[in-house]
Computed example of a mutant assay.
Amino acid sequence: MRKNRLPALLLCTLLCLAGCGGQGRQISDAASPPPSGAEITPAEVTETAAQTESYTRSTPISAVMSDPAFGDYGRLIFPANTGYWSGNTLEELHLTWYSHVDPDKTVEIVNYMKARAEAGETIFYDIYTEEEKAADPAKRDTGLFFFRGEPGAKFAVCNAGGGFAYVGAMHDSFPHALELSKKGYNAFALIYRPGAQTACEDLARAISFIFAYAEELQVDTDCYSLWGGSAGGRMAAYLGTYGPAGFGGDDLPRPGAAVIQYTGHSEYSRNDPPTYSCVGESDGIASWRVMEQRLAQLSALGIDTEFHHYPGLGHGFGLGTGTAAEGWLDDAVTFWEKQMEG
Rank of each mutant, 00 (worst) to 15 (best):
H171D: 03
H171P: 09
S173T: 08
S173I: 01
S173V: 01
A177Y: 03
E179F: 08
E179Q: 15
L180F: 03
L180A: 12
L180Y: 09
K183N: 12
F188E: 10
A189P: 11
L190W: 01
L190S: 00
R193Q: 07
R193N: 06
P194I: 03
P194S: 05
Q197P: 05
A199V: 02
A199R: 06
C200P: 00
C200W: 03
C200F: 09
C200E: 05
D202Y: 00
D202T: 07
L203H: 04
A204F: 07
A204L: 10
R205N: 12
R205E: 05
I207S: 07
S208I: 02
I210K: 03
F211R: 06
F211K: 11
Y213C: 03
Y213W: 12
A214E: 13
Q218L: 14
Q218C: 15
D220E: 15
D220W: 11
D220I: 07
C223G: 13
G229S: 12
G229L: 02
G229T: 01
G233I: 09
G233F: 07
A237L: 13
A237I: 13
A237C: 13
G240S: 12
Y242E: 14
P244V: 12
A245H: 06
A245G: 03
A245N: 06
F247Q: 01
F247Y: 15
G248L: 08
G248T: 08
G249F: 08
D250C: 13
D250P: 02
P253M: 06
A257P: 09
A257V: 04
A257F: 07
